[in-house]
Design a protein around this nucleic acid. Structure first.
Length: 425
DNA sequence: TCTGGGGTCCTAGGACCC
DNA sequence: TCTGGGGTCCTAGGACCC
């Protein structure tokens, strides 16, 4: 006997121009103006208001290339403020959880929500209610796409973005082929630059064509991921909702420098700082790392200066999250990959093979380990209370000449943010 | 002058084993 | 000249995502 069949209904809720919307919350004067938010180091444009999009400012474009348009049109420019965006993101996600606990927080500004428990005929109305509630409680405008699979809900969302209501459902539409036909293949979730090239070569230019391609051909000439995408276009769910937060497998901290760096000493300071951030992060999640990779490189855009890029991975004797040990190993790696005479533009560290700290199968765990653990704990809580890098290690340096550029920060402090009232009507 | 950062998964190929 | 065959495990690199 089959249980009562509900149509599977997945919503993709996506915050509109998220970083710009966050800045606008605290700055009503820029509500109707063109606004952009820049990546770290004020390098690229990573969020644009509709007004900025209308001016032809492209996503991911280097800031300096768009500077003329920006000045001419008095576009408001902001350096990114990730702690602010993170706080607002959590608030949006909390609001979404009130509608259904079956939620996958997919990125800082997106979540998949299982709405199968609502009747098919009400689904568009439910979508609108979610949108209104998020807007009212957090001030963040969203777009919502609803369909039978994640891949289709992405497409529905794509359409919703251009609609006044901000909500699109494909649930009650008998034949969605005419809709899929209008979706360019490169706008399909999971199809990037390389796959687009490959599909085009094989006469596939839109989502409908991919949907109708035989599964065996796709699997044979591409891979399982591509065949999953095609199945999902057919309305057969192949990509599950990941509702439980699984522990991460790696942790990367890397930055481009505000200025080019040539001296070993400065590179060392930068790498030591990245190690401190990374180890603090994995400690906060009770993880230990099996290995560390350190990498350095010069700018790939200025090859005439001589390009150099190198990386090296080293296993720790015992999986660890000890800052001091991690910095020590990182510095020895840096010594082996550093070469004089180059203008370094970026460096980073990657902690890999992460596992639970308490599952340590370490026969040699000792009193000394206990001492280190409690030292790390007190460093973390002090830094949490008084600001990052209150307590540090000597090699991390104090001058930080290489530090990021952030000329246009709105300087909104999340401490202030928490004191703001939450509006419920 | 100035080009982000942080993830995951898959696959091919090498090392190693019997 | 001819130099097995098949399995597992690991890693680096590629492709994709936001």
């Amino acid at each position: 006997m089959s249980s009562i069949l509900h149509t599977k209904k997945i919503a993709l809720v996506d915050c509109n121009s998220f970083y710009v919307s966050c800045e606008r919350l605290f700055n009503p004067k820029i509500r109707r103006k063109p606004v952009v938010v820049l990546s770290n180091n004020d390098g690229c444009i990573i969020s644009r208001s509709n007004e900025a999009k209308a001016l032809g400012i492209k996503m991911g474009e280097p800031y300096f290339k768009e500077k003329d348009i920006i000045i001419k049109n008095k576009v408001e420019v902001f350096s990114s403020n990730y702690s602010l965006y993170g706080d607002l993101s959590r608030r949006v996600m909390r609001t979404l959880k009130r509608f259904n606990t079956k939620i996958e927080v997919y990125s800082i500004d997106e979540a998949f929500l299982d709405l199968s428990n609502f009747p098919d005929q009400d689904i568009e109305k439910v979508g609108k209610e979610i949108r209104d509630t998020v807007l009212q409680w957090t001030g963040i405008p969203t777009s919502i796409g609803i369909a039978k699979t994640k891949t289709l809900s992405k497409i529905a969302n794509h359409i919703a973005k251009k609609k006044q209501s901000g909500v699109t459902s494909l649930i009650n539409i008998e034949n969605i082929d005419p809709i899929l036909e209008k979706i360019h293949i490169n706008d399909v979730w999971g199809v990037g630059r390389q796959l687009t090239k490959f599909y085009n070569k094989n006469g596939i230019y839109n989502a409908k064509q991919l949907k109708n391609k035989s599964n065996s051909w796709i699997k044979k000439s591409s891979n399982v991921l591509s065949s999953r995408t095609a199945m999902e276009l057919k309305g057969i769910p192949c990509i599950n909702l990941e509702t439980t937060t699984t522990k991460r497998k790696s942790c990367v901290v890397s930055r481009s420098f505000g200025k080019r760096v040539e001296r070993f000493q400065e590179l060392k300071e930068a790498v030591a700082n990245y190690c401190l951030n990374a180890s603090e992060k994995i400690r906060s999640e009770s993880l230990v790392a099996k290995a560390i990779t350190v990498f350095v490189r010069t700018s790939p855009f200025q090859r005439n200066y001589g390009y150099y890029s190198n990386a090296k991975k080293v296993d720790f004797p015992i999986a660890t999250n000890n800052s001091i040990e991690i910095v020590k190993v990182a510095v020895t790696i840096l010594e082996t990959i550093f070469k004089n005479g180059y203008q370094y533009q970026k460096a980073g560290v990657m902690l890999t093979g992460l596992s639970n700290a308490n599952e340590k199968t370490n026969l040699f765990s000792s009193e000394k380990d206990e001492k280190i653990n409690s030292l790390m704990k007190s460093i973390d809580s002090t830094n949490h209370r008084y600001g990052r890098s209150t307590l540090s290690v000597a090699s991390a340096g104090v001058q930080k000449k290489w530090n990021m550029k952030r000329e246009y920060s709105s300087k909104i402090d999340t401490a202030d943010f928490y004191s703001l009232p939450m509006i419920r009507a």
